[in-house]
Amino acid sequence: MGGSLGKPIILVAIIYLLLKFVVPNIPGSAPLPSSLIFLYLMLTTSGIVIFATLSGESKDAFWGPIQRFMTGENIGGLQMLRYGVLILFPLLVGWQTYSSTAPSDQPPAENRTIHPAPPGEYTGLSNPVAKTPDNIMQGKGFYAAFCSPCHGGQFDGKGPAARGFNPPPANFSDPTTIAMLQESYLFWRIKKGGVGLPIEGMPWKSAMPRWEVELPDEWIWKIIMGEYDGAHQSPRTWE
């Protein structure tokens, strides 16, 4: 009879462990929010209760031990555990109520889109500058002069002027930045700067200069070449 309750508990525990530790490690997955884990565990528990109470016999086997524990009759040394549960449960309900009704004292959550969609005229442009060693070297020179104070001499976003800015300057050696983008996207971002971002990119926070005011397009294209070469990345293409 004990087994009829033991199995559901083991099942709930296994599902919890799967959701908490196994699912996040599946490639392409992410840690599940605790509210979602709670929902899954509740669904599992509901299923178990429905299954266990299908017949009169299984119902007794399922509820019997719970009833005895709750009433405290003939449970011997488990009496202390019973008292613990009876005290802990109302306290947890109280704590949960407090934490869900207390007003948040955290700053507003910021869901900033790091790579928002560019305006139509900047999609699919190809670099008009020939990819020659000279041009790449020139691009790296421009990069050192104009970009490296923030984006860093090592293309890692850790230039000497980076520290005060929030969001931080992009790290080009990170495979989730320029390696995921086309050259035309970089052209837009460099030319129009932080203030050129759409609302989801939170342009009011960005310290990226609007380089169109200071640099000719040709220099910007060369900088793009120098950036990819220096950061050991390749632009994303449609092939």
């Binding site: 528990t45 031990p65 549960v85 949960q96």
Partner: peptide, 29 residues
């Protein structure tokens, strides 16, 4: 596990499961 499978402990464990589920949701905030 054998201890938990004891008849009368099981009720407590079910409640404890519910309690830890409460803990789980509350903890994130």
């Amino acid at each position: 596990i054998r201890v938990m499978q004891g008849r009368s402990a099981t009720g407590g464990v079910v409640l404890a499961c519910a309690a830890s589920a409460f803990l789980l949701t509350g903890a994130t905030q």
